[in-house]
């Protein structure tokens, strides 16, 4: 099994670390590769889009490198029903629709999840928070929200977690979108969300 982590910007190493640890715990043989260029995602069984700045990551994945983009490769992976996970900025990029901040910055989206997201839904960094929430199929997880987006409209997706009036985790077939950062929880040993994701692949 090969999992690619889109490595153009953001907390890439944290996802690589969390995914490797989750693989070990599940006894899965495989490799986790961070990639900045087209050519790796298309040869992978799953892809993760990390947290970071959605405006920056969008520009870099849609940038043409030798006639190819990482974005196209992610979309074709989705078409062949492979597993995809986006956290925070990654969630924004997976969405079909964005709010006025997404429009104002002309951020291109992958449009793979039938949802609308609102950027910085909870406020600025000062308002960033962590809180235990109920995650369907996993149980209670400590969710870390950093200038986080929220899902404000849902179409044909399954809601996995909510915080207050917002949906903060959804799944559409094998595509997972989270407003928070499970990769940061791996620092203190919790890899349950990554394990959940890896189980979608097999």
């Amino acid at each position: 099994m090969r999992v690619a982590v889109v490595g153009v910007q953001g907390d890439v190493e944290e996802h690589v670390f969390a995914t490797k640890l989750a693989m070990d715990r599940l006894g899965i043989e495989g490799e986790v590769v961070a990639t900045k260029k087209p050519g790796v995602v298309e040869k992978s069984d799953a892809v993760i889009i990390p947290g970071g700045e959605s405006t920056t990551i969008s520009k870099l994945i849609f940038r043409d490198v030798g006639g190819k983009t990482i974005a196209e490769e992610i979309i074709s992976l989705a078409e062949s029903d492979c597993a995809i996970m986006g956290t925070c900025a990654g969630l924004i990029l997976l969405s079909k629709r964005g709010d006025e901040q997404v429009e104002k910055t002309k951020t291109k989206l992958l449009e793979l999840l039938d949802i609308k997201v609102k950027r910085n839904a909870f406020g600025r960094q000062r308002e960033s928070f962590q809180v235990p929430i109920e995650f369907k199929g996993i149980g209670k997880v400590e969710a870390i929200f950093i200038r986080a987006p929220a899902i404000v409209e849902v179409g044909n997706v399954e809601v996995l977690a909510k915080f207050e009036n917002y949906v903060v985790a959804v799944r559409q077939k094998k595509i997972l979108g989270l407003a928070f950062h499970p990769e940061l929880s791996a620092e203190y040993g919790d890899t349950r969300v990554h394990e959940y994701f890896l189980k979608l692949i097999c």
């Binding site: 910007q9 953001g10 944290e14 700045e53 925070c88 235990p132 870390i144 950093i146 200038r147 620092e187």
Partner: peptide
């Protein structure tokens, strides 16, 4: 159990800037 400004959140914010 809602918490603001923990080390995890502060350092996490900085990590989101990586490669930038």
């Amino acid at each position: 159990k809602l918490r603001f400004g923990t080390d995890l959140i502060k350092r996490g914010f900085a990590k989101m800037q990586k490669g930038g």
